[in-house]
Design a protein around this nucleic acid. Structure first.
Length: 964
DNA sequence: CCGGGTGCGTTTTTT
DNA sequence: ACGCACCCGG
């Protein structure tokens, strides 16, 4: 926590609001505090409003946090800042397009328009689906690019390239490329030659061959090059040669890429058109169109420009975002705050050079933007550097460790050089430095980590700072385990579960590789074609032996109950209902099943998607290992497990950096895609290509085999990852490895000790809950609503303020209102789930208990429900939790509890119940579905006549009008 | 010391 | 497929 009095450097940042600044803000230096103060200072000035200041962040949560901090530091309240431009680049671009974007596509020569109903696809799965659909059509319409279809194994490789080009500011127009995009695609030979020469210098005073020649020792192995390719010895020279001939650089760089460029251009521009016609934009296209619009339209630019622009986490900006920030600056009051050492998002197109070469890029980008018009006011920018050097988070020992980490070789023999001169040394503010830094290694790594944590907890040697500033022994909640990979985190979680160890996992889960997803896929395949692949899974799950399964498949004779179930599924109209039934059959009622249903329903309109589409969706999900987010329960005294990426921006008293194993910090393999855009060599086909007609086979690209060996090999981001991990720690750092510690751990001043991996199992008093140790964050649909957003909440607020009419003999002094209502709901849930465990504590609760006891049939409690509705050609979803559903042989009733004695809320509850009614009606086509309200004040239950879908549609429209 | 051959292990996630 | 460590022969 920062001291409320800023230090000198912070004060310089806060008080100097005019002009351009680059702020080097290392971990724990009170960056957010200083930015909030600076913002407050600017807007508290007469004549300056929040609308005059753009504060760009990278995540929505960072924007929210920033607003909260600003409220503490300025005359403005949260309400006044609600619509202030403190937001992510993406949401700001969305805003600009919403206001001025209608005709933005015309600047690329496109006739399509961005309309008020153009949606932003924020789900990668959905975008990939759409792209596939686009590409199928494109392929059919453009036979002239057939060679390249053969090259791509997945359409997504092309989508990746398009995303990258958009992030770098390379856009297509209908008849070419926007601005100087084409020169970027060609590449820069002089810059390439520099790299070629650097890689081609012999070593050891000419006694040893150049690294480039050495790298090419496997040139041509297992490859078939086109006939124009040189032989290995032709390329490298004979034995004893120390370097490649200089001419190779030219020969390799000059390659006919006309066909490739025209393929990428056509696909790119047609995809943009496809998206506009389908009325959607991707994250990348938001920035693309905002940039083009701001660059081309002086009127819009003038209206959209700010007096002050601040960008947080500048090390995470992409090239296009840097340029957007400049275009949005109406003055030179531009402030970039970041830390190059924490740039770990290159895969998300973050370009660390934005901050490392800030001055050069600022001047160059500004000049580019002003090349043919006066667009931005950075004439001769001379930004001032401010360095925040005081660290309020960590002890001196931890800071020292992190600074060593940023200069530690990632592999043995790696020479670490620039830009390490730029490490701004931090000083610690911690009073006591009792830091322990140690390493542990054991082949049972997961157990060793847990055992170590168990020993740390309560041990005074690892004391942390208590609320009162005094040292206290550590608790589980003080400790975070960081891993490089999700997989490792999941493994650790599994082992922890065996011991009932208190851990919480934050991150993504490979949803489609879970049992519920696999069984759903199996039944869909059975429905579609009685597929053996489906039956085999179902029979195996049912416990049949392999030879029995073989026999069943061979004779197509299946168990009666399974056949009956299949026939019942066939009677269902929507795949949403099928999914529901399949999950019910296997008792998959937990978080994973819910997550699966939500994912299916928010990706597709579950009432209209075909089985075939859903089958392909799940298959691809399995193949790609698609992940869906899951978040940890807050509040428990539990160890946090997360990836280093997820931990960025957080801090913990004690950090365990696990998985420091040999080979676990591997170098990034250069690009995963076949078609690459790389600095400085432009657009290239990375490997295979074929020649039209004359050469039907697929060949390797020999030129690129040479080129890629001249491109820089980046370990830098690995090192930065290590830096980020260590610098999260306030007090203590423990490294953990399996048998073989990696180069980082060996090179750091850390003693690695043996450890006994015996973990003491936890006795939690009661049997482990069947529920998973994390909560599910419900993904919203393309446009998400809740039943509550359709309701008029003021009715309830009035009810809350009204005192209860009659005396309640046995309840506590009446504190009615939301708390009371949700308490009754909570009780009802607990009681319906496990009647033994919940005791009613008021008359309302007693009546609920009695009611639940008297219900016939099967109870479904807190059921997640999603209703897709088409509104004005858009698909929106209304998702909520139904309190209680009870199901008998021929009846299904949905019940909501109403604690409001006066019944004034009835019409509002009717809206909510109607949403649930329509979903259940779909789920249970063979049963009569009804909806009722249970009045907890008198124990009566009244049936509710559900609203028609058309009426719900009107409510959605009204809610959206309200929201805007 | 140098160069060539072989064997091993092999992602991260936000808008 | 690919970068790297390691081994071996000159």
């Amino acid at each position: 926590m920062s001291d409320p009095t800023p230090n000198d450097a912070q004060r310089r940042l806060i008080e100097n609001t005019e002009g351009a600044y680059l702020v080097d803000a290392g971990p724990g230096t009170g960056k957010t505090f200083a930015i909030a103060r600076r913002y407050g200072k600017i807007v508290d000035r007469a004549g300056v409003e929040p609308d005059d200041v753009l504060l760009a962040t990278f995540t929505r949560s960072a924007a929210t946090e920033m607003k909260e901090r600003i409220v503490d530091r300025s005359a403005y309240g949260l309400r006044e800042l609600a619509d202030a431009p403190i937001r992510t680049f993406h949401s700001h671009c969305h805003e600009v397009l919403r206001e001025h974007g209608h005709a933005a596509p015309t600047h690329l020569g496109l006739d399509e328009r961005i309309t008020g109903s153009t949606r932003v696809i924020d789900d990668e799965l959905v975008e990939a689906e759409r792209f596939r659909e686009f590409f199928d059509g494109f392929r059919g319409d453009h036979p002239e690019h057939a060679d390249f279809y053969r090259v791509l194994s997945e359409p997504e490789e092309l989508l990746d390239l398009i995303r990258e080009l958009a992030a770098k500011g390379v856009f297509p127009t209908t008849d070419g490329w926007y601005g100087d995009g084409e020169s970027h695609l060609d590449g820069d030979f002089d810059a390439f030659r520099e790299r070629f020469d650097a890689a081609n210098r012999p070593r050891n005073d000419g006694r040893k061959q150049s690294p480039l020649r050495e790298d090419l020792s496997r040139f041509g192995r297992n490859r078939a090059y086109l006939p124009d390719a040189p032989s290995k010895s032709e390329l490298r020279g004979g034995r004893g040669t120390k370097r490649l001939d200089d001419e190779v650089a030219r020969r390799v760089f000059d390659e006919d890429r006309e066909g490739l460029r025209s393929f990428v251009h056509d696909a790119y521009v047609e995809y943009v058109r496809f998206a506009l016609r389908r009325n959607y934009l991707t994250f990348g296209f938001l920035q693309l169109f905002a940039f083009v619009l701001l660059r081309e339209d002086p009127r819009v630019r003038e209206e959209a420009q700010f007096e002050y622009v601040m960008v947080d986490e500048f090390q995470d900006t992409s090239e296009i975002q840097f340029k957007l920030a400049l275009l949005l600056s109406g003055t030179e009051n531009f402030c970039a705050v970041g830390d190059w050492k924490q740039s770990i998002y290159s895969f998300q197109y973050a370009d660390v050079r934005n901050i490392l070469d800030f001055e050069e890029r600022l001047a160059r980008f500004a000049a580019d933007l002003n090349d043919d018009a006066d667009r931005v006011s950075f004439d001769a920018p001379d930004p001032t550097r401010i360095e925040l050097r005081e660290n309020y988070r960590s002890t001196a020992s931890v800071i020292d460790l992190s600074e060593r980490a940023i200069e530690t070789p990632a592999t043995s023999g790696e020479a670490v050089d620039a830009p390490l001169d730029d490490v701004v040394e931090l000083s610690s503010n911690a009073a006591v430095d009792n830091t322990v830094v140690e390493g542990i290694a054991h082949e049972d790594e997961h157990e060793a980590v847990l055992a170590k944590i168990q020993r740390i907890v309560g041990d005074d040697d690892y004391a942390v700072e208590g609320e009162d500033g005094e040292p206290r022994p550590p608790e589980y909640g003080d400790i975070a385990v960081f891993t490089r990979t999700r997989d490792y985190g999941r493994e650790l979680l599994d082992v922890a579960d065996e011991y009932d160890f208190p851990v919480a996992y934050d991150g993504g889960v490979e949803l489609f590789r879970t049992d519920p997803a696999k069984l759903l896929l199996a039944w869909l395949r059975i429905l579609e074609s009685d597929a053996e692949r489906g039956w085999a899974v179902v029979l195996e799950r049912a416990g049949y032996a392999f030879d029995e399964i073989d026999h069943a498949l061979a004779t197509a004779s299946y168990p009666d109950d399974a056949v009956a179930f299949r026939d019942a599924l066939r009677g269902l109209e929507s795949v949403g209902a099928v999914a529901r039934r399949v999950l019910d059959r296997y008792g998959f009622t937990g978080d994973t099943a819910d997550l699966l249903l939500h994912t299916v329903q928010s990706t597709y309109d579950a009432t209209t998607v075909t089985r075939g589409e859903l089958i392909r969706f799940v298959e691809r999900g399995i193949e790609a290992g698609t992940t869906v987010d899951r978040s940890a329960n807050a509040g428990d005294d539990a160890v946090t497990v997360q990836t280093i990426h997820a931990a960025k921006g957080l801090e913990y008293p004690i950090v365990v950096l696990a998985n420091m194993n040999d080979g676990r910090f591997p170098p990034r393999t250069s690009g995963s895609s076949v078609v690459e855009y790389r600095d400085p060599v432009g657009l290239r086909l990375r490997k295979r290509y074929s020649e039209a007609g004359t050469h039907p086979h697929v060949y390797d690209n020999w030129r690129y085999d040479v080129i890629r060996r001249c491109l820089p090999r980046e370990y830098d981001e690995e090192r930065r990852l290590l830096y980020v991990a260590v610098s999260r720690a306030e007090r203590h750092v423990v490294f953990a490895a399996g048998e073989e510690p990696n180069a980082f751990l060996e090179a750091l001043p850390v003693g690695v000790g043996e450890i006994d991996p015996a973990v003491e199992p936890f006795d939690r008093g009661e049997p482990a809950d069947a529920e998973l140790p994390f909560a599910v964050t419900t993904p919203e649909g393309p446009v998400g609503h809740t039943p509550h957003s359709l309701m008029d909440e003021t009715v309830f607020e009035e009810a809350d303020e009204r005192p209860e009419a009659g005396p309640e003999p046995d309840s506590e002094p009446e504190t009615r209102g939301m708390d009371f209502g949700s308490k009754v709901h909570d009780f009802a849930e607990a009681y319906a789930l496990d009647a033994d465990d919940a005791t009613p504590s008021s008359d309302h609760e007693r009546r609920v208990a009695e009611f639940i006891d008297g219900l016939p049939g099967e109870l479904h409690v807190e059921e997640p429900v999603t209703l897709p509705i088409e509104v004005d050609g858009r698909r929106v979803t209304v998702s909520g939790i139904a309190d209680l559903v009870h199901e008998t042989a021929d009846l299904v009733e949905i019940v909501d509890y109403n604690t409001d004695a006066t019944r004034r809320a009835q019409s509002e509850y009717r809206k909510q119940l109607s949403v649930y009614y329509h979903v259940l009606d779909e789920w249970f086509p063979d049963k009569e579905v009804t909806a009722s309200l249970f009045y907890t004040a008198d124990g009566t239950r009244e049936p509710i006549e559900p609203l028609e879908v058309a009426e719900l549609r009107d409510l959605v429209r009204a809610a959206e009008a309200e929201r805007d």
